[in-house]
Simulated scan of single mutants.
Amino acid sequence: MSNYSINEFIRQTKQDDTENDYFELETPRILEVNLLDQVWAKAGSMISYNGGIKFEREGILEHGVGRLFKKAVTGEGSSLMKATGRGRLYLADQGKKITIFDLDNEAITVNGNDLLAFEPSIEWDIKLMKKVAGMVSGGLFNVTLKGSGRVAITSHYEPLTLLVRPGQPVITDPHATVAWSGHLEPDFKTDISFKTFIGRGSGESIQMEFEGDGFVIVQPFEEVHTTGSQ
């Protein structure tokens, strides 16, 4: 058989029917959800599904007025959708690399733009980074997830984890920061001396500073968050 035949291509790229875990990496950039009940996912991330699955945007009363207000204030496209039913669901986000975490009574905070999906057993809350709202294009928000269950996040290319140790703070670019330990509270600072070098030509460089004991995940890409982005 030719290495370039359609049959050979199908053999190499077809879905793996032997997988039945709740979250599976079908490829490094496509998440398979073996849905038995429901899952929360980033709105617009569905690329394919089979079976009986219904999709709906986060309901107005789903998580109370407070979260909706915070979402409206950010002006960001952090909309979540709820997929309910039984079947196989395939999720992706602009070809970004996907990482799965199996939380065991743990917490992780994820940049709202980098959250792909999570199990309904996970508690979540949207938090606006008030100190940088207005300073960064489109503002910044994050989602804190805690409890036990699977969480899938995305990054542009391969992520790097930086360890935060007492007395050894880690400073990152907000646009390259993907996630961090749920108990860490980043501080924000501006560095006017960076103004000439950042290439954006608008104001100071905004930096995130993490202190304490934990980790920060960064990506080799500065993702500019624009209002209404998905």
Rank of each mutant, 00 (worst) to 15 (best):
T99Y: 06
G95R: 02
I53T: 02
K71F: 05
D93F: 09
G75H: 06
D173K: 10
E209Y: 03
N50D: 15
N20W: 05
I47N: 09
H63F: 10
V178H: 07
K189I: 15
E204D: 12
P169K: 08
G167I: 01
L163P: 13
A107G: 14
I122T: 05
I53K: 01
G95C: 02
M208T: 00
T154L: 09
R57I: 14
E123A: 14
G75C: 03
M46F: 04
A43S: 12
A107K: 03
V143I: 15
A133Y: 12
E185K: 14
G112Q: 03
N113F: 15
T109W: 00
G203M: 05
R57V: 12
I60W: 07
L115C: 05
K189D: 10
G77T: 05
G95S: 06
M135V: 13
F194S: 14
S155N: 06
V65R: 14
H183K: 10
I122S: 09
I126E: 01
I10A: 01
L162H: 13
K189G: 11
K96R: 13
T177P: 06
S229I: 14
Q207T: 09
T144C: 07
E185S: 14
K189P: 05
Q12G: 11
A152G: 01
K54I: 13
I126F: 13
D37L: 07
G44D: 02
H183V: 08
E8Y: 07
L145A: 06
N50I: 01
G44W: 00
A152M: 04
V110T: 00
T172S: 02
R11S: 10
A176S: 11
T109S: 12
E19V: 11
G203W: 02
E223G: 03
N20K: 08
K71G: 11
V216S: 04
K97P: 01
I30P: 09
T227Q: 10
N50F: 10
A92H: 10
G77C: 04
D125A: 15
D37E: 13
Q230C: 15
T196N: 11
G95W: 04
G87N: 05
D17K: 15
G44P: 02
K97C: 07
I198E: 11
G75V: 11
V170R: 07
G52L: 12
A43T: 08
P174G: 02
S202Y: 09
I171Y: 06
E19A: 12
I10E: 08
Q15L: 15
A92I: 04
L103T: 03
A41S: 04
T13H: 15
E158S: 12
I100H: 06
P166I: 00
F215G: 01
I30M: 07
W124F: 15
M129C: 09
R29P: 00
D37R: 08
P169A: 06
E32M: 12
M208L: 09
G134H: 01
E204L: 11
T154P: 10
L61E: 08
N34L: 09
G138W: 05
V170A: 03
Q219P: 03
T13W: 12
G139T: 05
T161Q: 14
G139N: 05
V143L: 00
T177A: 09
S79G: 13
D104F: 07
K42T: 09
K71S: 12
R150T: 05
E32Q: 14
A72Y: 10
L91E: 10
K146T: 14
S193K: 13
D187I: 10
P186W: 04
R165W: 01
G134F: 00
